[in-house]
Write a protein that binds this DNA or RNA. Structure first.
Lengths: 155, 155
DNA sequence: TAGACTATTTATAATGA
DNA sequence: TTCATTATAAATAGTCT
């Protein structure tokens, strides 16, 4: 982010990687603290360096947030409603693209998604949009199921 | 951080705070992913909104990092994942699920998606959401690209 | 190995649709 | 409300101590 644009991929040089880890970890923790202060959100960040050292940040405290997370996460039992959504051809198209993306591990820090998506024509794009909407619905449903024990009326 | 310098203190306006929370949470997760990719560090971020919703990010996964954190200090340097991928964990997860879904095909109206999505835990759901959001952006971009080339009638 | 410095890139607050 | 856009602040890669 400075002097030169840099690829988001593993830094090979040991000492450079170490320096970057320190700088970016500090930046990450700072951002986390700002999110806490500005939005009254409880935030925890844990980072393990390649060397195995643990660094943690938490407002109000790491352990309190982890406890809360465990508690919330434990609320995802098996008693889930079945949903009925049909897979369309477009959805399968999404799958194919993602498959390629996962295989190729694109260079340049970005996934291959971009390139694949760029090849799509107008008709396919609309199908993709629909497919993604379906995905969003499913994900939203599942999320509400999991979080349903929290009875706050958000938004 | 833009247009105007902003104080790092609680935002009083509800909707503004909500918007800021979303934006900054996304930024935080992105940075966490970059730290993971570039420095081979395991990183987890958990954020609870004021409304009580939980958002989590983790490469390679939230729970694995939390487990590791619980064993604080006990971790040896060899415990660390030697992976450096450009795809996020969430993107791969989406890919895996869609792959399975595409294989099985929509048999009786109910796709495999539902079942796969239902298996997701608390932390993974948010990762899925992020991945899908990214897909939506890409698709939107491409759509606009296409539309801007098809003469002048936009939309 | 650890700070400063700063040229740039990146994130984002405000705005607009 | 939720997008996309844009002007600007903030983060940071490379560099030099």
């Amino acid at each position: 982010m400075a002097r030169r644009s840099v690829e988001i991929k593993k830094i090979q040089d040991r000492s450079k990687r170490q320096v970057t880890f320190t700088k970016r970890r500090q930046g990450l923790f700072k951002k986390a603290g700002q999110l806490h202060s500005m939005c009254d959100a409880d935030v925890a960040v844990i980072a393990f360096s390649l060397a195995g050292n643990a660094y943690a940040f938490g407002d109000p405290s790491v352990s309190s947030i982890l406890d809360r997370y465990r508690q919330a996460g434990a609320a995802s039992p098996e008693d889930i409603y079945p949903v009925a959504v049909n897979l369309t051809a477009a959805e399968k198209k999404v799958g194919e693209i993602l498959e390629k993306a996962a295989e190729t591990k694109g260079a340049g820090g970005r996934s291959v998604w971009d390139k694949e998506v760029e090849k799509l024509g107008f008709g396919e794009i609309e199908e993709m949009e629909n497919a993604v909407e379906e995905m969003k619905k499913l994900i939203g449903l599942q999320k509400r199921r999991i979080l349903s024990n929290e009875s706050n009326c958000g938004e």
